[in-house]
Design a protein around this nucleic acid. Sequence first.
DNA 1: CATTTAAGCGGAGGCTAACTCCGTTTAGCG
DNA 2: CGCTAAACGGAGTTAGCCTCCGCTTAAATG
Lengths: 192, 192
Amino acid sequence: MRADALRNRERLVEVAQSAFATHGIETSLEEIARQAGVGIGTLYRRFPRREDLIAAVLAERYLKLAECAQTLAECREDADAAFTEWLTLLIEHMAIYRGLSLAVKEAIHDQSTALGQTCKEMMDAGTRLLERGQRAEAFRSDVNFWDVMSLCSGIVTAVERRAEKPVDSGVPPVNPYLLLDVVLRGLRKQDA
Amino acid sequence: MRADALRNRERLVEVAQSAFATHGIETSLEEIARQAGVGIGTLYRRFPRREDLIAAVLAERYLKLAECAQTLAECREDADAAFTEWLTLLIEHMAIYRGLSLAVKEAIHDQSTALGQTCKEMMDAGTRLLERGQRAEAFRSDVNFWDVMSLCSGIVTAVERRAEKPVDSGVPPVNPYLLLDVVLRGLRKQDA
DNA sequence: CATTTAAGCGGAGGCTAACTCCGTTTAGCG
DNA sequence: CGCTAAACGGAGTTAGCCTCCGCTTAAATG
């Protein structure tokens, strides 16, 4: 890879990160290119789909999440507590950019995409954590990790949507931790 | 309202209903106008926002859902079973048009919109059904109906997203009834 | 250092769809 | 029948996606 190309790539990811943070993941790509001081063609050559850019921005963040799952699996005796703690981290990570939770929900069903790949390691680690809990008879075993991801994505989407609305609309704020607690309870074996 | 205006309105709703069914809720409004044989200006005058059109298409459907909740509340002894049955109907209704689940998630947080109004009666009926269950000590009482709606919308969105992906991508299909069961279990009082 | 060339660049241009605006048409009342 | 407010329609504006291709340049080679 040529030096100038690398420079541009880094610049784009940097600008995209801050644009996503401000305007959400659906922000204009032309604007990102402009702010990065490159032509729109350059952006598209490096990141043919929006997703590719998202994946680049998230890469290290999601790698850490995977590592964290690994650590929890090794250090925490209590499989239930480990998974609970990790899911909490997961929904927090899904909430960093407006719209991300939906993009992730899309990606988990299709690992052929760049974002899907980025999520893969994280998903694998999470799956192991869930399965450990299932072996320990803490969680019901008819649910797989994709199911859990789907529900978590739903929680984060709800928070995002509520946040866009006026505070005084009569609808109470959405508490993601409460919703996560509902999901986790539903996941646990009752007869234990 | 003038007779021609009424005719056009009905025609638009009719066409929109079938366009939504085929292409999802995000289908082109210009296409709907064209198929209805009216100008795009006419469509926008009657339905200034896409949501208004969606609301018109859903109106009677959601009214029935509200009635159904009422009936269940009156006829079913078992508050838990009543709510369970109704939520099943709810997620089925949310799934009729691709993208609807997200629009509804948006609308429940803002009843100032047309779709929010359309959902209101249905929501009120659902709320009563949930609260009945809570009074009967069947469901935990720190969760409100918006929370439940949010989770249900998340379930339906997951199904939609999965359906758009190739069957052989290695990801198992999403079973909405299983996910709903998880949510319902999470909603129930455990110590009962 | 000069030459070469493939990698990279950029932005004009085509496309689609949303949404507005305003001159024209017409329903239906008196 | 004539009037007028209501309704119509579609051209035009805007915005963003994405492609395509002629120009530029890094860096490899002799």
